[in-house]
Design a protein around this nucleic acid. Structure first.
Lengths: 225, 225
DNA sequence: TCATCAAGTAACCGTTTAGTTACTGGCCGG
DNA sequence: CCGGCCAGTAACTAAACGGTTACTTGATGA
Protein backbone atom coordinates (compact mmCIF):
# COMPACT_ATOMS: atom_id res chain seq x y z
CA UNK A 1 0.00 0.00 0.00
CA UNK A 2 2.48 2.59 1.11
CA UNK A 3 5.62 2.30 -0.87
CA UNK A 4 6.67 5.20 1.28
CA UNK A 5 10.26 6.26 1.21
CA UNK A 6 10.57 3.85 -1.64
CA UNK A 7 14.17 4.62 -2.55
CA UNK A 8 16.98 2.15 -2.77
CA UNK A 9 18.89 3.26 0.31
CA UNK A 10 19.34 0.63 2.94
CA UNK A 11 21.13 1.46 6.15
CA UNK A 12 21.18 5.23 5.85
CA UNK A 13 17.43 5.69 5.70
CA UNK A 14 16.60 8.08 8.53
CA UNK A 15 13.07 7.34 9.66
CA UNK A 16 11.45 10.63 10.59
CA UNK A 17 9.59 9.48 13.64
CA UNK A 18 7.20 12.43 14.09
CA UNK A 19 6.29 13.44 10.58
CA UNK A 20 3.57 11.04 9.59
CA UNK A 21 0.79 10.14 11.95
CA UNK A 22 1.91 7.04 13.71
CA UNK A 23 -0.58 4.36 14.50
CA UNK A 24 1.20 3.90 17.79
CA UNK A 25 2.19 7.10 19.52
CA UNK A 26 2.84 6.91 23.27
CA UNK A 27 3.04 10.66 23.81
CA UNK A 28 -0.14 11.40 21.98
CA UNK A 29 -2.02 8.65 23.81
CA UNK A 30 -0.70 9.87 27.15
CA UNK A 31 -1.73 13.44 26.40
CA UNK A 32 -5.16 12.33 25.21
CA UNK A 33 -5.72 10.42 28.45
CA UNK A 34 -4.68 13.44 30.55
CA UNK A 35 -7.00 15.76 28.66
CA UNK A 36 -9.91 13.35 28.86
CA UNK A 37 -9.27 12.75 32.55
CA UNK A 38 -9.22 16.50 33.22
CA UNK A 39 -12.68 16.83 31.71
CA UNK A 40 -14.09 13.76 33.41
CA UNK A 41 -12.75 14.64 36.87
CA UNK A 42 -13.84 18.27 36.48
CA UNK A 43 -17.36 17.29 35.47
CA UNK A 44 -17.95 14.51 37.96
CA UNK A 45 -15.52 14.80 40.84
CA UNK A 46 -13.26 11.93 41.80
CA UNK A 47 -16.13 9.84 43.16
CA UNK A 48 -18.28 10.34 40.10
CA UNK A 49 -15.56 10.03 37.44
CA UNK A 50 -15.54 6.74 35.56
CA UNK A 51 -12.35 5.12 34.36
CA UNK A 52 -14.15 3.63 31.38
CA UNK A 53 -15.47 7.06 30.45
CA UNK A 54 -11.97 8.55 30.52
CA UNK A 55 -10.66 5.81 28.26
CA UNK A 56 -13.50 6.30 25.82
CA UNK A 57 -13.11 10.10 25.76
CA UNK A 58 -9.42 9.65 25.07
CA UNK A 59 -10.20 7.33 22.17
CA UNK A 60 -8.15 4.60 23.75
CA UNK A 61 -8.40 1.66 26.07
CA UNK A 62 -8.68 1.38 29.82
CA UNK A 63 -5.55 -0.73 29.85
CA UNK A 64 -3.49 2.21 28.55
CA UNK A 65 -4.67 4.39 31.38
CA UNK A 66 -3.30 1.94 33.91
CA UNK A 67 -0.20 1.48 31.81
CA UNK A 68 0.72 5.18 31.87
CA UNK A 69 -0.63 6.37 35.21
CA UNK A 70 -0.85 3.43 37.58
CA UNK A 71 -4.38 3.85 38.82
CA UNK A 72 -7.30 6.24 39.00
CA UNK A 73 -5.95 8.22 41.95
CA UNK A 74 -2.49 8.77 40.50
CA UNK A 75 -4.11 9.91 37.26
CA UNK A 76 -6.21 12.37 39.24
CA UNK A 77 -3.15 13.72 41.02
CA UNK A 78 -1.41 14.22 37.69
CA UNK A 79 -4.38 16.15 36.36
CA UNK A 80 -4.45 18.34 39.46
CA UNK A 81 -0.73 19.08 39.33
CA UNK A 82 -0.90 20.04 35.68
CA UNK A 83 -3.78 22.41 36.44
CA UNK A 84 -1.73 24.24 39.07
CA UNK A 85 1.31 24.41 36.83
CA UNK A 86 -0.92 25.94 34.17
CA UNK A 87 -2.15 28.90 36.18
CA UNK A 88 1.12 29.64 37.96
CA UNK A 89 3.04 29.58 34.69
CA UNK A 90 0.65 32.01 33.03
CA UNK A 91 0.76 34.19 36.14
CA UNK A 92 4.53 34.49 36.05
CA UNK A 93 4.40 35.61 32.45
CA UNK A 94 2.30 38.59 33.59
CA UNK A 95 5.34 40.36 35.07
CA UNK A 96 3.15 42.51 37.29
CA UNK A 97 6.17 44.21 38.81
CA UNK A 98 6.78 46.20 35.63
CA UNK A 99 4.17 48.93 36.18
CA UNK A 100 2.67 51.21 38.80
CA UNK A 101 1.41 49.57 42.02
CA UNK A 102 -2.26 50.23 41.25
CA UNK A 103 -1.89 48.95 37.72
CA UNK A 104 -0.01 45.88 38.93
CA UNK A 105 -2.71 44.91 41.41
CA UNK A 106 -5.49 45.70 38.95
CA UNK A 107 -3.83 43.60 36.26
CA UNK A 108 -3.36 40.68 38.63
CA UNK A 109 -7.06 40.86 39.48
CA UNK A 110 -7.99 40.98 35.79
CA UNK A 111 -5.66 38.13 34.93
CA UNK A 112 -6.98 35.93 37.73
CA UNK A 113 -10.62 36.56 36.84
CA UNK A 114 -10.07 35.92 33.15
CA UNK A 115 -8.04 32.78 33.81
CA UNK A 116 -10.81 31.41 36.02
CA UNK A 117 -13.33 32.32 33.35
CA UNK A 118 -11.40 30.51 30.62
CA UNK A 119 -10.57 27.46 32.74
CA UNK A 120 -13.69 26.29 34.54
CA UNK A 121 -12.14 22.84 34.85
CA UNK A 122 -9.48 24.32 37.12
CA UNK A 123 -12.13 25.65 39.49
CA UNK A 124 -13.92 22.31 39.51
CA UNK A 125 -10.75 20.45 40.31
CA UNK A 126 -10.04 22.81 43.22
CA UNK A 127 -13.53 22.19 44.52
CA UNK A 128 -13.11 18.45 44.31
CA UNK A 129 -9.70 18.55 45.95
CA UNK A 130 -10.99 20.67 48.82
CA UNK A 131 -13.97 18.39 49.33
CA UNK A 132 -11.36 15.79 50.20
CA UNK A 133 -9.31 18.20 52.30
CA UNK A 134 -6.40 18.35 49.88
CA UNK A 135 -5.75 14.64 50.36
CA UNK A 136 -3.92 14.28 47.06
CA UNK A 137 -2.36 17.72 46.79
CA UNK A 138 -0.61 17.23 50.11
CA UNK A 139 1.10 14.14 48.71
CA UNK A 140 2.35 16.04 45.69
CA UNK A 141 6.10 16.45 45.39
CA UNK A 142 5.99 18.40 42.13
CA UNK A 143 4.37 21.49 43.63
CA UNK A 144 6.64 22.64 46.42
CA UNK A 145 8.28 25.72 44.93
CA UNK A 146 5.52 26.64 42.52
CA UNK A 147 3.57 29.20 44.53
CA UNK A 148 6.14 31.21 46.48
CA UNK A 149 6.96 33.43 43.51
CA UNK A 150 3.46 34.92 43.47
CA UNK A 151 3.46 36.09 47.09
CA UNK A 152 7.00 37.42 46.77
CA UNK A 153 6.16 39.61 43.83
CA UNK A 154 2.93 40.79 45.44
CA UNK A 155 4.82 41.79 48.58
CA UNK A 156 7.19 43.92 46.50
CA UNK A 157 4.38 45.72 44.71
CA UNK A 158 2.53 46.45 47.94
CA UNK A 159 5.74 47.77 49.48
CA UNK A 160 6.27 50.14 46.59
CA UNK A 161 2.68 51.30 46.86
CA UNK A 162 3.02 51.95 50.58
CA UNK A 163 6.17 54.00 50.07
CA UNK A 164 4.41 56.00 47.37
CA UNK A 165 1.56 56.63 49.81
CA UNK A 166 -1.13 55.06 47.63
CA UNK A 167 -1.66 51.86 49.67
CA UNK A 168 -2.58 51.54 53.34
CA UNK A 169 0.04 50.14 55.72
CA UNK A 170 -2.05 47.11 56.66
CA UNK A 171 -2.23 45.80 53.09
CA UNK A 172 -1.02 42.19 53.14
CA UNK A 173 0.10 40.05 50.16
CA UNK A 174 -1.79 36.92 51.12
CA UNK A 175 -4.95 38.85 51.96
CA UNK A 176 -4.86 40.72 48.68
CA UNK A 177 -4.46 37.53 46.69
CA UNK A 178 -7.18 35.77 48.65
CA UNK A 179 -9.51 38.71 48.07
CA UNK A 180 -8.96 38.63 44.32
CA UNK A 181 -9.30 34.86 44.14
CA UNK A 182 -12.38 34.83 46.39
CA UNK A 183 -14.33 37.25 44.23
CA UNK A 184 -13.52 35.38 41.03
CA UNK A 185 -13.86 31.86 42.34
CA UNK A 186 -17.17 32.19 44.14
CA UNK A 187 -18.95 34.03 41.35
CA UNK A 188 -17.97 31.42 38.77
CA UNK A 189 -17.96 28.19 40.75
CA UNK A 190 -21.30 28.97 42.38
CA UNK A 191 -22.92 30.60 39.37
CA UNK A 192 -25.43 27.76 38.94
CA UNK A 193 -26.97 27.84 42.40
CA UNK A 194 -26.75 31.63 42.54
CA UNK A 195 -28.45 32.07 39.18
CA UNK A 196 -31.16 29.69 40.32
CA UNK A 197 -31.92 31.20 43.72
CA UNK A 198 -31.68 34.84 42.66
CA UNK A 199 -33.36 34.35 39.30
CA UNK A 200 -30.68 36.12 37.32
CA UNK A 201 -28.28 34.52 34.84
CA UNK A 202 -24.81 35.33 36.14
CA UNK A 203 -23.18 33.90 33.03
CA UNK A 204 -24.60 36.61 30.75
CA UNK A 205 -21.78 38.61 29.13
CA UNK A 206 -23.04 41.91 30.56
CA UNK A 207 -23.06 40.46 34.08
CA UNK A 208 -19.61 38.94 33.61
CA UNK A 209 -18.21 42.29 32.49
CA UNK A 210 -19.82 44.07 35.42
CA UNK A 211 -18.33 41.58 37.87
CA UNK A 212 -14.90 41.95 36.31
CA UNK A 213 -15.04 45.69 36.97
CA UNK A 214 -16.41 45.01 40.44
CA UNK A 215 -13.45 42.78 41.35
CA UNK A 216 -10.91 45.43 40.37
CA UNK A 217 -12.91 48.10 42.20
CA UNK A 218 -13.23 46.09 45.43
CA UNK A 219 -9.61 44.98 45.44
CA UNK A 220 -8.24 48.47 45.00
CA UNK A 221 -10.81 50.05 47.35
CA UNK A 222 -9.70 47.67 50.10
CA UNK A 223 -6.06 48.75 50.01
CA UNK A 224 -5.94 52.35 48.75
CA UNK A 225 -5.05 54.98 51.29
CA UNK B 1 -42.66 -6.23 83.33
CA UNK B 2 -44.26 -2.85 83.03
CA UNK B 3 -47.47 -2.70 84.98
CA UNK B 4 -47.30 0.91 83.88
CA UNK B 5 -50.38 3.04 84.31
CA UNK B 6 -51.76 0.16 86.32
CA UNK B 7 -54.95 1.87 87.37
CA UNK B 8 -58.40 0.55 86.85
CA UNK B 9 -59.39 3.03 84.12
CA UNK B 10 -60.30 1.47 80.84
CA UNK B 11 -61.29 3.70 77.96
CA UNK B 12 -60.08 7.04 79.30
CA UNK B 13 -56.40 6.11 79.45
CA UNK B 14 -54.63 8.77 77.33
CA UNK B 15 -51.52 7.26 75.87
CA UNK B 16 -48.81 9.91 75.90
CA UNK B 17 -47.23 9.16 72.53
CA UNK B 18 -43.99 11.19 72.88
CA UNK B 19 -43.04 10.78 76.50
CA UNK B 20 -41.26 7.45 76.64
CA UNK B 21 -38.72 6.47 74.01
CA UNK B 22 -40.62 4.51 71.46
CA UNK B 23 -39.01 1.52 69.83
CA UNK B 24 -40.72 2.61 66.66
CA UNK B 25 -40.57 6.31 65.97
CA UNK B 26 -41.04 7.40 62.36
CA UNK B 27 -40.14 11.04 62.96
CA UNK B 28 -36.95 10.25 64.82
CA UNK B 29 -35.86 7.76 62.19
CA UNK B 30 -36.61 10.22 59.43
CA UNK B 31 -34.65 12.96 61.15
CA UNK B 32 -31.73 10.61 61.84
CA UNK B 33 -31.57 9.68 58.16
CA UNK B 34 -31.60 13.33 57.10
CA UNK B 35 -28.80 14.22 59.50
CA UNK B 36 -26.71 11.24 58.49
CA UNK B 37 -27.30 11.98 54.82
CA UNK B 38 -26.24 15.59 55.30
CA UNK B 39 -22.89 14.46 56.70
CA UNK B 40 -22.36 11.76 54.11
CA UNK B 41 -23.20 13.98 51.12
CA UNK B 42 -21.15 16.85 52.54
CA UNK B 43 -18.10 14.66 53.07
CA UNK B 44 -18.21 12.70 49.84
CA UNK B 45 -20.34 14.50 47.30
CA UNK B 46 -23.25 12.83 45.58
CA UNK B 47 -21.05 10.52 43.56
CA UNK B 48 -18.99 9.43 46.55
CA UNK B 49 -21.81 9.16 49.09
CA UNK B 50 -22.85 5.60 49.91
CA UNK B 51 -26.44 4.72 50.69
CA UNK B 52 -25.29 1.96 53.04
CA UNK B 53 -23.08 4.42 54.89
CA UNK B 54 -26.00 6.80 55.40
CA UNK B 55 -28.17 4.02 56.80
CA UNK B 56 -25.41 2.92 59.15
CA UNK B 57 -24.70 6.48 60.35
CA UNK B 58 -28.42 6.93 61.03
CA UNK B 59 -28.46 3.74 63.05
CA UNK B 60 -31.14 2.31 60.81
CA UNK B 61 -31.61 0.25 57.71
CA UNK B 62 -31.24 1.02 54.05
CA UNK B 63 -34.82 -0.03 53.51
CA UNK B 64 -36.04 2.88 55.70
CA UNK B 65 -34.15 5.36 53.59
CA UNK B 66 -36.03 4.27 50.51
CA UNK B 67 -39.24 4.11 52.52
CA UNK B 68 -39.07 7.76 53.57
CA UNK B 69 -37.26 9.44 50.71
CA UNK B 70 -37.79 7.38 47.57
CA UNK B 71 -34.21 7.13 46.34
CA UNK B 72 -30.72 8.55 46.77
CA UNK B 73 -31.31 11.62 44.62
CA UNK B 74 -34.53 12.67 46.31
CA UNK B 75 -32.82 12.26 49.66
CA UNK B 76 -30.01 14.49 48.44
CA UNK B 77 -32.46 17.14 47.27
CA UNK B 78 -34.16 17.09 50.65
CA UNK B 79 -30.82 17.59 52.39
CA UNK B 80 -29.98 20.49 50.10
CA UNK B 81 -33.33 22.19 50.61
CA UNK B 82 -33.06 21.91 54.36
CA UNK B 83 -29.59 23.46 54.23
CA UNK B 84 -30.90 26.51 52.37
CA UNK B 85 -33.88 26.85 54.69
CA UNK B 86 -31.44 26.80 57.59
CA UNK B 87 -29.30 29.75 56.51
CA UNK B 88 -32.15 31.89 55.17
CA UNK B 89 -34.16 31.39 58.37
CA UNK B 90 -31.25 32.42 60.58
CA UNK B 91 -30.59 35.37 58.27
CA UNK B 92 -34.12 36.67 58.61
CA UNK B 93 -33.84 36.58 62.39
CA UNK B 94 -30.94 39.02 62.09
CA UNK B 95 -33.27 41.96 61.35
CA UNK B 96 -30.47 43.96 59.76
CA UNK B 97 -32.84 46.81 58.99
CA UNK B 98 -32.99 47.85 62.63
CA UNK B 99 -29.70 49.76 62.81
CA UNK B 100 -27.52 52.21 60.94
CA UNK B 101 -26.64 51.32 57.32
CA UNK B 102 -22.96 50.67 58.11
CA UNK B 103 -23.83 48.53 61.09
CA UNK B 104 -26.44 46.62 59.11
CA UNK B 105 -24.02 45.72 56.32
CA UNK B 106 -21.26 44.92 58.79
CA UNK B 107 -23.55 42.66 60.78
CA UNK B 108 -24.72 40.84 57.67
CA UNK B 109 -21.08 40.22 56.76
CA UNK B 110 -20.31 38.97 60.27
CA UNK B 111 -23.39 36.76 60.33
CA UNK B 112 -22.63 35.22 56.94
CA UNK B 113 -19.00 34.52 57.82
CA UNK B 114 -19.87 32.97 61.16
CA UNK B 115 -22.68 30.90 59.68
CA UNK B 116 -20.32 29.52 57.04
CA UNK B 117 -17.75 28.82 59.76
CA UNK B 118 -20.24 26.91 61.88
CA UNK B 119 -21.82 25.01 58.99
CA UNK B 120 -19.07 23.59 56.79
CA UNK B 121 -21.53 20.99 55.54
CA UNK B 122 -23.56 23.79 53.92
CA UNK B 123 -20.52 24.94 51.95
CA UNK B 124 -19.76 21.40 50.86
CA UNK B 125 -23.30 20.86 49.66
CA UNK B 126 -23.16 24.07 47.64
CA UNK B 127 -19.93 22.89 46.07
CA UNK B 128 -21.41 19.55 45.16
CA UNK B 129 -24.57 21.10 43.77
CA UNK B 130 -22.59 23.52 41.62
CA UNK B 131 -20.36 20.76 40.32
CA UNK B 132 -23.57 19.39 38.82
CA UNK B 133 -24.75 22.80 37.61
CA UNK B 134 -27.61 23.03 40.10
CA UNK B 135 -29.24 19.99 38.54
CA UNK B 136 -31.27 19.19 41.66
CA UNK B 137 -31.79 22.68 43.02
CA UNK B 138 -33.46 23.72 39.78
CA UNK B 139 -36.05 20.99 40.28
CA UNK B 140 -36.85 22.18 43.77
CA UNK B 141 -40.33 23.51 44.33
CA UNK B 142 -39.82 24.28 48.02
CA UNK B 143 -37.33 27.11 47.45
CA UNK B 144 -39.02 29.63 45.23
CA UNK B 145 -39.82 32.42 47.66
CA UNK B 146 -37.03 31.75 50.12
CA UNK B 147 -34.34 34.13 48.90
CA UNK B 148 -36.13 37.27 47.75
CA UNK B 149 -36.41 38.60 51.30
CA UNK B 150 -32.66 38.98 51.62
CA UNK B 151 -32.16 41.12 48.52
CA UNK B 152 -35.17 43.24 49.39
CA UNK B 153 -33.90 44.10 52.81
CA UNK B 154 -30.41 44.75 51.49
CA UNK B 155 -31.80 47.15 48.89
CA UNK B 156 -33.56 49.14 51.61
CA UNK B 157 -30.43 49.44 53.73
CA UNK B 158 -28.32 50.55 50.78
CA UNK B 159 -30.96 53.12 49.85
CA UNK B 160 -30.93 54.56 53.35
CA UNK B 161 -27.14 54.69 53.28
CA UNK B 162 -27.13 56.48 49.97
CA UNK B 163 -29.60 59.10 51.19
CA UNK B 164 -27.46 59.61 54.29
CA UNK B 165 -24.45 60.12 52.03
CA UNK B 166 -22.41 57.27 53.51
CA UNK B 167 -22.69 54.83 50.60
CA UNK B 168 -21.76 55.37 46.97
CA UNK B 169 -24.56 55.54 44.38
CA UNK B 170 -23.36 52.48 42.49
CA UNK B 171 -23.71 50.16 45.49
CA UNK B 172 -25.88 47.23 44.39
CA UNK B 173 -27.70 44.70 46.64
CA UNK B 174 -26.71 41.59 44.71
CA UNK B 175 -23.11 42.74 44.34
CA UNK B 176 -22.83 43.47 48.05
CA UNK B 177 -24.19 40.07 48.99
CA UNK B 178 -21.98 38.28 46.47
CA UNK B 179 -18.96 40.16 47.80
CA UNK B 180 -19.68 39.10 51.37
CA UNK B 181 -20.42 35.52 50.40
CA UNK B 182 -17.38 35.29 48.12
CA UNK B 183 -14.93 36.30 50.82
CA UNK B 184 -16.36 33.86 53.33
CA UNK B 185 -16.98 30.96 51.01
CA UNK B 186 -13.64 30.87 49.25
CA UNK B 187 -11.53 31.20 52.39
CA UNK B 188 -13.32 28.32 54.10
CA UNK B 189 -14.16 25.96 51.26
CA UNK B 190 -10.67 26.23 49.77
CA UNK B 191 -8.77 26.34 53.05
CA UNK B 192 -7.19 22.92 52.50
CA UNK B 193 -5.56 23.60 49.15
CA UNK B 194 -4.69 27.17 50.17
CA UNK B 195 -3.07 26.07 53.44
CA UNK B 196 -1.11 23.47 51.49
CA UNK B 197 0.21 25.65 48.68
CA UNK B 198 0.96 28.73 50.81
CA UNK B 199 2.27 26.78 53.80
CA UNK B 200 0.13 28.59 56.35
CA UNK B 201 -2.75 27.06 58.32
CA UNK B 202 -5.78 29.18 57.47
CA UNK B 203 -7.88 27.40 60.11
CA UNK B 204 -5.85 28.78 63.00
CA UNK B 205 -8.05 30.92 65.28
CA UNK B 206 -5.85 33.99 64.85
CA UNK B 207 -6.09 33.72 61.07
CA UNK B 208 -9.85 33.18 61.21
CA UNK B 209 -10.30 36.29 63.34
CA UNK B 210 -8.12 38.32 61.02
CA UNK B 211 -10.13 37.23 58.00
CA UNK B 212 -13.40 38.07 59.74
CA UNK B 213 -12.17 41.63 60.23
CA UNK B 214 -10.90 41.66 56.67
CA UNK B 215 -14.31 40.74 55.26
CA UNK B 216 -16.04 43.56 57.11
CA UNK B 217 -13.32 45.99 56.08
CA UNK B 218 -13.43 45.04 52.39
CA UNK B 219 -17.21 45.03 52.20
CA UNK B 220 -17.56 48.48 53.72
CA UNK B 221 -14.55 49.89 51.86
CA UNK B 222 -16.15 48.86 48.56
CA UNK B 223 -19.35 50.86 49.13
CA UNK B 224 -18.52 53.79 51.43
CA UNK B 225 -18.52 57.20 49.83
C1' DT C 1 14.40 -10.12 7.82
C1' DC C 2 13.50 -11.45 11.96
C1' DA C 3 13.54 -11.30 17.11
C1' DT C 4 12.21 -8.29 20.65
C1' DC C 5 9.67 -5.44 23.30
C1' DA C 6 6.49 -1.77 23.94
C1' DA C 7 1.85 -0.15 22.37
C1' DG C 8 -2.61 -1.48 22.15
C1' DT C 9 -7.03 -4.59 22.55
C1' DA C 10 -10.79 -7.16 24.50
C1' DA C 11 -12.64 -10.19 27.46
C1' DC C 12 -12.80 -11.11 32.06
C1' DC C 13 -12.86 -10.98 37.48
C1' DG C 14 -14.08 -10.03 42.19
C1' DT C 15 -16.17 -6.38 44.66
C1' DT C 16 -19.17 -2.76 45.50
C1' DT C 17 -23.33 -0.41 44.64
C1' DA C 18 -28.24 1.24 44.40
C1' DG C 19 -32.30 -0.63 44.82
C1' DT C 20 -35.82 -4.80 46.03
C1' DT C 21 -38.17 -8.65 48.06
C1' DA C 22 -39.87 -11.33 51.60
C1' DC C 23 -40.37 -11.27 56.09
C1' DT C 24 -40.87 -9.90 61.47
C1' DG C 25 -42.75 -7.57 65.18
C1' DG C 26 -44.70 -3.63 67.71
C1' DC C 27 -48.57 -0.14 67.88
C1' DC C 28 -53.37 1.28 67.62
C1' DG C 29 -58.47 1.39 66.76
C1' DG C 30 -62.43 -1.09 67.41
C1' DC D 1 -57.83 -8.39 73.25
C1' DC D 2 -57.16 -8.93 68.64
C1' DG D 3 -56.57 -8.02 63.65
C1' DG D 4 -54.56 -5.19 60.41
C1' DC D 5 -51.15 -1.98 59.19
C1' DC D 6 -46.84 0.08 59.11
C1' DA D 7 -41.98 0.69 61.07
C1' DG D 8 -38.16 -1.94 60.77
C1' DT D 9 -34.82 -6.06 59.36
C1' DA D 10 -31.88 -8.94 56.59
C1' DA D 11 -30.80 -11.32 52.73
C1' DC D 12 -30.79 -10.86 47.93
C1' DT D 13 -30.06 -9.16 42.83
C1' DA D 14 -28.61 -7.12 38.68
C1' DA D 15 -25.65 -3.89 37.10
C1' DA D 16 -21.63 -1.06 37.32
C1' DC D 17 -17.23 -0.44 38.87
C1' DG D 18 -11.89 -0.42 39.24
C1' DG D 19 -8.50 -3.17 38.04
C1' DT D 20 -6.16 -7.49 35.60
C1' DT D 21 -4.98 -11.15 32.40
C1' DA D 22 -4.00 -13.08 28.16
C1' DC D 23 -3.32 -11.85 23.89
C1' DT D 24 -2.33 -9.19 19.21
C1' DT D 25 -0.01 -5.76 16.52
C1' DG D 26 3.51 -2.86 14.90
C1' DA D 27 7.97 -0.24 15.23
C1' DT D 28 12.89 -0.87 15.64
C1' DG D 29 17.73 -2.36 15.96
C1' DA D 30 20.92 -6.07 15.10
Amino acid sequence: MEGAGGNGEKKTVKRRPRERVLQRDPERTRAAILEAATKEFAENGIGGARVDAIAERAGTNKRMLYHYFGDKEQLYLHVLEDAYVGIRTAERALQIGDRSPEEGIGDLALFTWRYFLKHPEFLSLLGTENLHRARWLRQSVRLKELHSHLLGELAQILERGKKAGVFIESADPLNVYLTIASLGYFYLSNQYTLSTIFGRDLAEPANLDAWERHIVHVTLASITA
